[in-house]
C-alpha cells in the first residue's frame, strides 16, 4: 500500500525502521509489505483484530518468529540503522537489545530474585553484590521493589498475576534493553493491575522505546503516543494516538475503532 497514512520521524528519533516487511507461515501471508518507523523513547501501540499481524510484526523485531517452522521473512528492519534481519546477526545479542514481555505472566518457577537475575547471569554476571544491585534497580524500575523486597527468595509463582507481570517486566529491563516489546501485557490481568502496568509503561517510556500490542483500543489510547492499525496483514494507518482516535484517516480504521468492524 503506497497511500497508507503514516508518519516518519527524524533519523535521530527513529528507533526501528521497517521497510517492505512481509512475513508468511508455510506460504500463508501474515504480513504484507509493511513499512513504518517506530520513534525512540515513545510508546507505540499496534492495534487490530486478531490475526491482523500485529503480534507477527512485534515478534519480527526480536526475531522470535525464527522459532516457528516454515516462516519466511522478506524486507528490512533496522534497529538504530542496523539491519537486524541479516543472517550474520546473533539473535541472542539482538534479544538482549530488544526485550519482550508476553501476554501471560510467565515468571520462571524460581525465586523472585533468580527470575530477575536470570538474564544477568546468562550474560556472565556472577558477582552476588552486583547481582543484588541490578536486581533491586530492575525491581524498582518495575515499581515492584516495595512489594517484594521482603520475599526475594520466595517462589515467583506466589506473587499475584499483576505482580508477576511486573516481575516479568523487571526481568526484561534488568538486562537494560534499548527496546521493550509488550505483547498484550495486561490482557490476563484485572483492571487495577492493568492500570498499574499502564502507569508503568508511561514511566518506562522515559528510558526505553516501547511497543505495545493490544486488542484493547482504550488501552492503546491511554498508554501510547503513536498508534498503528493493522488489518489483514497490512498497515492501514499509523498516526499520533490523539489523531487516530478522534479523526482516523482510513475508513477501515474508523470502522474498527468505532466498533463497526465485522
Amino acid at each position: 500500500m503506497t497511500d497508507t497514512p503514516t508518519l516518519t520521524f527524524d533519523p535521530a528519533d527513529t528507533c526501528l525502521k521497517v521497510e517492505q516487511l512481509s512475513v508468511s507461515y508455510d506460504g500463508k501471508a501474515a504480513l504484507r509489505e509493511v513499512s513504518l518507523t517506530v520513534p525512540r523513547h515513545r510508546v507505540t501501540a499496534f492495534i487490530g483484530p486478531s490475526g491482523c499481524g500485529k503480534s507477527t510484526l512485534l515478534r519480527s523485531f526480536n526475531r522470535m518468529n525464527d522459532l516457528i517452522r516454515g516462516v519466511e521473512v522478506t524486507g528490512q528492519i533496522h534497529l538504530f540503522g542496523e539491519d537486524i534481519l541479516a543472517p550474520k546477526v546473533d539473535v541472542t545479542v539482538l534479544r538482549r537489545r530488544i526485550g519482550m514481555v508476553f501476554q501471560q505472566p510467565n515468571p520462571f518457577p524460581m525465586s523472585v530474585f533468580d527470575n530477575v537475575a536470570y538474564g544477568l547471569r546468562l550474560q556472565g554476571l556472577s558477582d552476588q553484590r552486583a547481582l543484588e544491585r541490578e536486581v533491586e534497580w530492575a525491581l524498582r524500575s518495575a515499581a515492584l521493589w516495595d512489594e517484594v523486597k521482603d520475599r526475594l527468595e520466595a517462589s515467583a509463582l506466589t506473587l499475584s498475576g499483576g505482580q508477576q507481570q511486573r516481575l516479568v517486566i523487571a526481568r526484561a529491563i534488568a538486562i537494560r534493553p534499548e527496546v521493550l516489546l509488550l505483547d498484550e501485557p495486561a490482557s490476563a490481568l484485572d483492571p487495577i493491575s492493568t492500570l498499574k502496568i499502564e502507569e508503568l509503561i508511561g514511566q518506562l517510556a522515559e528510558a526505553y522505546s516501547i511497543i505495545v500490542v493490544t486488542h484493547n483500543m482504550q488501552q492503546a489510547a491511554r498508554v501510547s503516543d503513536y498508534t498503528a492499525f493493522l488489518y489483514l496483514g497490512e498497515l492501514v494507518e499509523f498516526s499520533a494516538t490523539d489523531d487516530l482516535f478522534t479523526r482516523p484517516q482510513a475508513r477501515q480504521t474508523e470502522d474498527y475503532i468505532t466498533g463497526r468492524y465485522g
Binding site: M64, L67, T92, P109, Y118, L122, V168, A172, I175
Partner: peptide, 15 residues
Amino acid sequence: IPRQLREASLALGAT
C-alpha cells in the same frame, strides 16, 4: 511445560 517459559528464556537472549 508452557511454551511461554521457553519464549521468556529465549527472549532474554538465552540460547
